[in-house]
Design a binder for these strands. Structure first.
Lengths: 300, 300
DNA sequence: TGAGTAGATGCTCAGGTTGAGCATAACTGG
DNA sequence: CCAGTTATGCTCAACCTGAGCATCTACTCA
C-alpha cells in the first residue's frame, strides 16, 4: 500500500458578523495542495495555495492535525492508497462584502448547531433531541451528551465543537457518518462536505475557540485599526456566543500593551463615536499567554 | 520525489523524581514505526509498538505534531525522500526502579536546562550566557531570549520548552543545529539525539507541561492509588519546577469529584502517614477542563 | 430643535480564586 | 522523649470575574 500525502487548509475569516471558511472549486471542499512537492516548509506551502484561493495573504497559519486513519483510504482506482492529510488553520481579515467574491462559505451553514449568539437555535434543539434518543438507555452516553451539548447542568463550551461533531458522527446523525442512523433520527441540519472536510473544519473551529481564550488571535482577523466593538463582534462570531461588553473591554484594556488607542474615532457605529485601537504587533511572540493553573512556587 | 511516512512516539513516565523518555534500540533514538502499514488507526499503531518497547501498556496517547519540512529530507541513497513523521505523545506509569530495564532515558539528561526544581542549574546558566551572546546587538532577539529564558523580569514558563529548544537551535548552540555557532558559543550541555528527535521530545514535553495546567494528566502516570505527595512529586518532575504544597493540595481537593480518598494510608513516607487517593476515571472525558478567559455571557 | 435610541465608556460590588505562610498532627530514628 | 520529616488545616490579602447601573456623545425623527 502506498501513501499519498496532501495538505488541507481551514482558512477562517469574519465578514460583518458572519464567520466564513474558505472553500475551493466546490463549496463542499476545503482548499488543499500536494504534500510531496518541493516546498521548503509545509506551512509556507499552505500559505501559498490558501492565499491564491482567498485572493489575499493569510496572516496566521498553524498546523492543526494529521488525519490518516483507515477510513480515509481512497477507493478511486487500481490500488488502495492511504491518504495522509496534514491540516492547517489559517486566519485572515476581510473587507466588508469581500466574501461575495471567492469561495467563502458561512461556517454556521456547515455546523449550524454551533451558533448560540441568539440562544439555542432550532438546529441545536434538533441535534439535542436526536442525541438524547441515541443515548437512551446508556448512562455513559447521557453524561457525555449532556457535557458536550451543555445540558443537565453542564455549561455550553464553545471550544468543544470537534467533540460535538464526533459524537454526532458516532451517533450516525451526520450525512458523513459511516453508520447512518435510521431516517427518523438522522436529521443533519448542516450542509455536509466532501470526505472528512467538515470534521477538519470542526477541528479548526475548536482550536481557534480554545486559543481565543488565552491568546491574542482576533487581531489577525481585523484591520490595522479597529474599535473594541468590532473586536467583540468578531469574537462573538467565532465563539458563537455573546460576550459581556464591559467585561470584554476591561479584559482587553487591562492587558495594557496589548492594544493602544490611535487617538482617532470611528463615528459610523450609530452611537457614541468609538475609539480606534491598534494591535501592538511588536510584542514578543506568544507573550500574552495567560499562564498557569498550577500553584507554582518560585524556583529557589 | 517520493514521501516516506513514519510514526514517532514520545513516551514519558516518571520514576521517583526522574522524568524519563522511552528510547529504542539506541539511547538517542525515539521509538518509531511505519506509517504505511495496515493499521486501522495511527494511534492504535503507536500504542502497539510503544507498548512493546516499554514492556507495558501506554495509558494515554495523543497526536503531537507532524514534521515534514525540507530539512528532513534524507540523503541516504539514490533519491531524496521527504520524510513525514507523525509524532505522538504517550504517558504511562512505572514501578519504582522499573526504568532500569528497557530504554528509559532521563529527560533532563537530554534537555538539562529544563529542570529548575533546585533553582537554575549550571546548564541553564550556560545557555543563558550563550544566548545573550547570540542576541547581542539585536533588541528583538534580546526580548525573545528574555521572554523564553525567564530573564529581564519575565517569569520562567515551563511550557515554553519547545520554543527554548528552537531558539537554541537557531542560535547554533545545539549539536543538531544546522549552522553551528563558533566553538566558543556552542556548548550544548545536553545529550543530542538522532535527526530531530530531541526537538520532538521538546514538543512532547511542552505539550504535556501545557496540559498539566488545565487537564488531569498526572493521573495517567501514577498507580491506581497514590498520595497527594506523590502526585506533587510527579508534577514537579514534569514541570521542572517546585510546587507550593498546600496550594497544590487545595487545587486537587477543591476539584471534588476529581479524586476520592480510599480510606487507607501510606505510612512509608517518612512522616505523618499520607492518605491514599484514587482518581475517579468515571468522569466524562476531558471534563476537568477549566474553561474560559473570555467574559462570556449566558446565551439568551 | 427636543425627545428618543444606540452604542461606547466608566465604575461598583460581591464572590471566588490565587499566592504565601503560620500552625498542627502523626510518624520514624536515635 | 527530642529532633526531623511529611501530611494537613487554616487564614489573609491581593486579584480576578461575572453582573449590573449609570453616563456620555452621536444620530434619527417628529
Amino acid at each position: 500500500m502506498r501513501i499519498r500525502g496532501e495538505l488541507v487548509a481551514v482558512v477562517l475569516a469574519v465578514d460583518g458578523a458572519t464567520p466564513l471558511v474558505l472553500a475551493s472549486g466546490d463549496p463542499a471542499r476545503l482548499p488543499s495542495g500536494p504534500l510531496a512537492s518541493d516546498q521548503r516548509s509545509l506551512q509556507g506551502s499552505v500559505r501559498e495555495f490558501a492565499a491564491e484561493q482567498a485572493g489575499r495573504a493569510i496572516g496566521y497559519v498553524e498546523q492543526l492535525y494529521t488525519f490518516a486513519d483507515a477510513d480515509r483510504i481512497s477507493e478511486t482506482g487500481e490500488r488502495l492508497d492511504r491518504i495522509v492529510s496534514v491540516s492547517y488553520l489559517g486566519l485572515t481579515g476581510l473587507d466588508r462584502g469581500e466574501s461575495q467574491q471567492g469561495w467563502w462559505q458561512p461556517v454556521y451553514g456547515l455546523l449550524p448547531w454551533e451558533d448560540l449568539r441568539a440562544g439555542p437555535g432550532e438546529e441545536l434543539i434538533t441535534m439535542r433531541a436526536a442525541l438524547a434518543d441515541w443515548a437512551r438507555g446508556s448512562l455513559e452516553r447521557q453524561e457525555r451528551v449532556g457535557y458536550l451539548m451543555g445540558e443537565a447542568g453542564f455549561p455550553w463550551r464553545p471550544e468543544l465543537a470537534l467533540q460535538r461533531y464526533e459524537v454526532m458522527w458516532e451517533a450516525g446523525l451526520l450525512a458523513e457518518s459511516r453508520d447512518r442512523a435510521s431516517a427518523k433520527r438522522q436529521a443533519d441540519p448542516g450542509r455536509p462536505m466532501l470526505h472528512d472536510h467538515r470534521r477538519i473544519l470542526a477541528t479548526g473551529l475548536s482550536r481557534l475557540r480554545s486559543m481565543l481564550q488565552y491568546r491574542p488571535m482576533v487581531f489577525e482577523m481585523v484591520p490595522e485599526t479597529f474599535t473594541l466593538g468590532r473586536l467583540q463582534e468578531v469574537v462573538e462570531a467565532l465563539a458563537g456566543q455573546p460576550v459581556h461588553t464591559q467585561n470584554f473591554r476591561r479584559l482587553i484594556e487591562q492587558q495594557h500593551q496589548l492594544v493602544e488607542p490611535t487617538g482617532e474615532f470611528d463615528r459610523s457605529t450609530g452611537g457614541r463615536p468609538a475609539r480606534l485601537y491598534r494591535y501592538r504587533r511588536e510584542l514578543v511572540g506568544e507573550r500574552q499567554h495567560v499562564g498557569t493553573k498550577l500553584p507554582l512556587s518560585r524556583p529557589r
